[in-house]
């Protein structure tokens, strides 16, 4: 495995902070049908201290990147099932090893579907309840601050971040659900702008875009809560001109953590 991931496991004592010499490198995994790869790369580079490294699905090497992003899209056309074929890509072996060793891994939309397919995260994403693709800004309640992705938010805060998917309904068995709750691994839930809803009692018809179990929009996994899978697209919420900048703190938090570790 690459040097940087062992560095992640054991941060060196001579930490460098923001403005350090080497840019933080995010490896964006590019499948032939990825279509949010550039958006993810642009979001990372928009922070001013990041560099996007595009990694082709047939590569066998993560080239020492600091962070891995599995972007949105339709990896291989996804006629069978979203992400079902992507799991067999050569690069996924390396991504899996990286993530299992604690490497920060952000899996967005189709990336989330792939992460579930390869078993990096539990559960699965199935066809939206209304059987239609849905693209809109949704309310997203921050359910935990305890992760390298969400520590820039306040718990309970409601973000506005877009979704764009046809298969985003999160499902899992009861045991998995209990585990996610017990381990505080639910990162985001769909929510009305007020943030108020009653779990179990509230159908979420107006704000849950896909019928996900208990409005789950994103979950954490990995040995150090280092994997985040989420259906909404934080990379599309980087500038107010695009309708929201609420995705920016997520990337900033990730950057800050990496800077400390560098």
């Amino acid at each position: 495995m690459s040097l940087s991931s062992s560095a992640i496991m054991a941060p060196p004592s001579d930490m460098t902070f923001k403005g350090g010499s080497a840019p933080l490198r995010a490896g964006i995994i590019v499948f032939p049908g990825s279509n949010c790869d550039r958006d993810a790369g642009n979001a990372w580079e928009a922070l001013g201290e990041g560099e996007a490294v595009y990694l082709w699905h047939q590569e066998n090497d993560l080239r020492g990147v600091d962070v891995v992003i599995l972007p949105g899209g339709f990896s291989y056309g996804d006629a069978l099932r979203a992400g079902a074929i992507a799991r067999f890509a050569p690069i996924m072996k390396e991504v899996t090893r990286f993530a299992e060793e604690g490497g920060p891994t952000l899996a967005i939309c189709n990336g989330f579907q792939i992460a579930c397919e390869v078993g990096l995260l539990p559960g699965a994403l199935v066809r939206n309840e209304r059987m239609r693709f849905v693209c809109r800004h949704v309310g997203l309640r921050v359910e935990t601050e305890a992760s390298m992705f969400t520590n820039g938010y306040r718990k309970g805060e409601v973000l506005s971040i877009p979704v764009a998917h046809g298969e985003g309904r999160y499902v899992c068995d009861d045991a998995t659900y209990a585990e996610l709750v017990a381990e505080d691994r639910i990162a985001f839930r769909y929510a009305p702008q007020t943030g108020n809803f009653v779990l179990g009692a509230d159908s979420g018809e107006d704000y849950n875009p896909n019928g996900s179990r208990d409005h789950i929009a994103g979950i954490l996994g990995g040995p150090q809560r280092n994997i985040l899978g989420m259906m909404p697209h934080p990379e599309r919420a980087m500038h107010t001109e695009l309708g929201s900048a609420n995705g920016r703190p997520l990337f900033e938090a990730l950057c800050a953590v990496m800077n400390v570790r560098h």
Binding site: N35, C135, M238
Partner: peptide, 16 residues
């Protein structure tokens, strides 16, 4: 109709 379309991919759409 439009919610069935991805209106934002490429992150250049300023007026949805």
């Amino acid at each position: 109709v439009w919610e069935q379309y991805d209106q934002m991919v490429q992150t250049q759409t300023e007026m949805l």
